[in-house]
């Protein structure tokens, strides 16, 4: 447990010394707010809800999360510190979870910085607090899944840019795949599977104020699967 916490702290230190983390945070905050206020038109819509703000999150996270996870394992390989990590008296699972927790703490810090949007707009109308709570829960869950996916891609790559491109591409596909049917006609069962696989589809309930158990399970399941696959790859490297 101590080793896991030490690794989490190390990951946090690395992230806080990393320019891409600050750029990604500034991008997320600025782009989400620009979308919400200027494109979506919060004032013109005259509606006390943050649905528009959070609805933009899945697509923005496609760019932001890979910027955080690209360093995860790829940088360790490049610098040669991965060998040191792998020789630590920690299990592969602990190494994976340690890195994952470190990155998730950064994501939580980012999301904390979105709170001023809610606080500043609160006096304008009767916002549904329950809905805002589920919107944050949903954003944390989708971010958690995206981080796990990003770290899995990172463990497969030896340089940061490949890790970034791979993770962003995979996240983009997973986010938009549920809408493929808009463009082409698909057989019913296939369309159903694609909708189920899509990250975006499951996010919708959270944005409306509903904690959907199937969506909750989907995010937790996919996160665990990615962490497991990362651990498998690490374990294989360790044994090789």
């Amino acid at each position: 447990m101590n080793g896991l916490l030490a690794l989490t702290r190390k990951e946090l230190r690395i992230q806080f010394s990393s320019p891409p983390m600050y750029i990604a945070t500034a991008f997320l905050l600025s782009a989400a707010a620009m979308w919400f206020f200027l494109v979506h038109g919060f004032l013109a819509r005259d509606t006390a809800t943050l649905r528009g703000y959070f609805a933009a999150m899945p697509l923005l996270l496609v760019l932001v999360i890979p910027a955080l996870t690209m360093k995860g394992w790829a940088e360790e390989y490049r610098l040669g510190t991965s060998e040191l990590l792998l020789t630590l008296p920690l299990r592969s699972v602990e190494l994976v979870v340690g890195k994952y927790l470190g990155t998730m703490l950064i994501v939580l810090c980012m999301l904390l910085l979105t709170l001023p949007v809610a606080f500043l707009l609160m006096p304008l109308g009767e916002f549904d607090l329950g809905q805002i709570v589920t919107e944050y829960i949903g954003t944390i869950l989708i971010s958690g899944t995206a981080v796990a996916l990003g770290l899995f891609i990172s463990v497969l790559c030896t340089n940061q840019s490949t890790a970034f491109t791979g993770a962003a591409g995979l996240l983009l596909v997973l986010t938009l795949i549920g809408r493929l049917e808009v463009l082409i006609s698909l057989p019913g069962p296939l369309a159903g599977v694609l909708r189920y696989v899509s990250l975006d589809t499951h996010f919708d309930g959270f944005v409306r104020g509903v904690l959907d158990f199937r969506a909750l399970w989907y995010y937790l399941w996919l996160t665990s699967l990615c962490l497991y696959l990362t651990a498998v790859v690490l374990e294989a490297r360790r044994r090789a």
């Binding site: 905050l29 600025s30 707010a33 001023p116 304008l124």
Partner: peptide, 21 residues
């Protein structure tokens, strides 16, 4: 109020994050 919220969230906080970094 909305203009203030826009400035804070689009400009001030992101700039603060970059400066802090």
């Amino acid at each position: 109020v909305v203009r203030f919220a826009q400035w804070v969230n689009i400009v001030i906080i992101p700039v603060f994050v970059v400066l802090f970094g």
